[in-house]
Design a protein around this nucleic acid. Sequence first.
DNA 1: ATTACCATTCGTCGAACAACGAAGTATACT
DNA 2: AGTATACTTCGTTGTTCGACGAATGGTAAT
Lengths: 243, 243
Amino acid sequence: MHMGDADIAVVAALMGEPARAKVLMALLDGRALAASTLAAEAGVAPSTLSAHLARLVDGNLISVEVSGRNRYFRITRPAVAEALEALARLAPTQPIRSLRQGTHAEAIRRARTCYDHLAGRLGVELLDTLVNSELLVVERSQDAISDPVLGAGRIQRYTLTSAGKRRLADLGVVLDPSSRRPLTRYCLDWSEQRAHLGGALGAALLTRLIELGWLNRCDRRIIKVSNAGRDGLAAEFGIILGP
Amino acid sequence: MHMGDADIAVVAALMGEPARAKVLMALLDGRALAASTLAAEAGVAPSTLSAHLARLVDGNLISVEVSGRNRYFRITRPAVAEALEALARLAPTQPIRSLRQGTHAEAIRRARTCYDHLAGRLGVELLDTLVNSELLVVERSQDAISDPVLGAGRIQRYTLTSAGKRRLADLGVVLDPSSRRPLTRYCLDWSEQRAHLGGALGAALLTRLIELGWLNRCDRRIIKVSNAGRDGLAAEFGIILGP
DNA sequence: ATTACCATTCGTCGAACAACGAAGTATACT
DNA sequence: AGTATACTTCGTTGTTCGACGAATGGTAAT
């Protein structure tokens, strides 16, 4: 009747279907997955999933990359991942059935990927450390650039200090200067209820830590810390992880 | 098959129906509205809306307060409002049809309520000012209290300095010490792409500014600044508003 | 070239669900 | 008391939409 509110309904309906929701959650690690993989993940026939994927693409939540006879899908922009996490915070955590689920839930709270960067307890600890040792400083009261296409989700940023730049370069973290993606970004954690580091820097840091062999991906979103990683994180950042 | 992820689907489906979405958006100002009001807002028959409201209550997104023969519905917890705003950031802003819609959209970006506190350009400015004049300081690297029932949405907090306490007391802002609600909370703004002040303090501040006659509510979510408010905000906080 | 594989389109079936009006149950007004 | 108002429950109708298998168009392997 009167107002110019965005209609939540269409986008929420896209996420409100079980198969599509499973797809989106599977893509939450930021990687691109093939349609067949996603079909198995969602537990429906390929033909069924194809229709779902088409709707998600049409709704601009995911995008396609064709590679040979495969089609890989990934989440288009961070704002999508953020909305998913916001919904996950709301959703009732279903009761733990098996011991495996219990340990899985514990592991995912300890350290996981969120879109393409580090989340969970480790992600939060790491951000805190970077800020406390003044490698990052909070950038406040500066006008945000509003990019309706790409950057609708970015809200609060940090800037890298010169000490931070040096330290990360020493560690071997490489940033792509041509990327239009904001360097850092708040990302809100559903398990820790606090912020962790997103943005291009968060992504590059995760990549490097895996490269160094400090972290390993297993079971999609879960991250495991190696012995080298335990030592390295303690030496480099003073992060002592729980048992 | 394997994991303990929260199922986004059920909660997203609740928001994914046009009538229910309209209801939730109407309730985003934090006030409790009667069922008949909401029926008019959603544009469906009372009997239809009754079913929708029942489902929303069952899904723990809204709660009821009975008052005589009326039933008032409101959003249960801040996390719900946050998820709605996250979705609004994602949703395509539908094209402006009329001039009235244009001015309405401009007004809602200027200053509005979000749940029960101040948002929009004014809300963001106010938070910045409070932080810059060190009435609030960012509270970092402290373990968050995880309250699965009420406080699932709180992420990052500020603490009120002693100067801040004095200043706000002088202004006549009263806080209910018995409330279990966190004093401050980040809340992310879909129009400004930056944070504004939520939590009990954000709510109390809005209440007081309206009491003082500095701000007035009109048309549900829109807030207008009075002449007294313009002077008061400039004198008290140094906030100069645009034209 | 032929065979195998990946993904999409099409047609059909079935279930889920939103919509309404009518009837029922409260509560308020006079 | 009686009447009006506010909301819910119930029964019905109709549409939407997700599910699958079969068939089609491309791409890679041999």
